[in-house]
Simulated scan of single mutants.
Amino acid sequence: MDYWHQEYTEVNLKHNTLLAYERAIRLQIKPALGKYRIRSLTAAILQTFVKDLYRKNYSKSSLEIFVCLVNNALKHAGHP
Rank of each mutant, 00 (worst) to 15 (best):
V70P: 03
S61E: 13
Y21W: 09
K30T: 12
Y21R: 00
R55Y: 09
A20W: 04
Y36Q: 05
H15Y: 09
A32T: 09
H15N: 05
T48D: 14
A32R: 05
V11F: 14
K30G: 00
K30L: 14
A43Q: 08
S40T: 15
K35N: 12
L69V: 04
A73G: 12
L74Y: 06
L19T: 10
E64D: 13
T42A: 04
S59H: 05
Y3L: 13
K60G: 00
V67T: 14
L46T: 03
N12I: 07
A43E: 01
A20R: 05
V70D: 01
E7A: 13
T48C: 07
Y21C: 08
L41F: 05
T9Y: 03
K51C: 00
M1W: 05
Q47W: 05
L19F: 09
N71I: 04
T48E: 15
Y58T: 06
A44V: 14
I65E: 00
K14I: 00
L33E: 01
F49S: 02
D2V: 07
N57D: 15
K14Q: 08
I45A: 05
D52N: 15
A32D: 06
H76M: 09
L27N: 11
K35H: 15
G34P: 08
N71L: 08
L69D: 04
T48W: 01
L13C: 06
A44L: 12
Y8E: 07
L74D: 03
N71F: 00
E10V: 02
Y36K: 03
A20S: 15
V67M: 15
M1Y: 07
T48P: 01
T48V: 13
T9Q: 02
S61V: 11
H15E: 11
Q28G: 11
K51W: 01
V11A: 13
F66Q: 07
L41Y: 03
G34N: 06
Y58C: 14
I29S: 05
A20V: 13
T17A: 09
K51F: 10
K35V: 13
K56P: 08
N71K: 12
W4M: 03
S59L: 11
G78R: 01
N16D: 11
Y3F: 11
Y8M: 10
C68A: 14
M1F: 14
F66D: 01
T17R: 05
R39K: 09
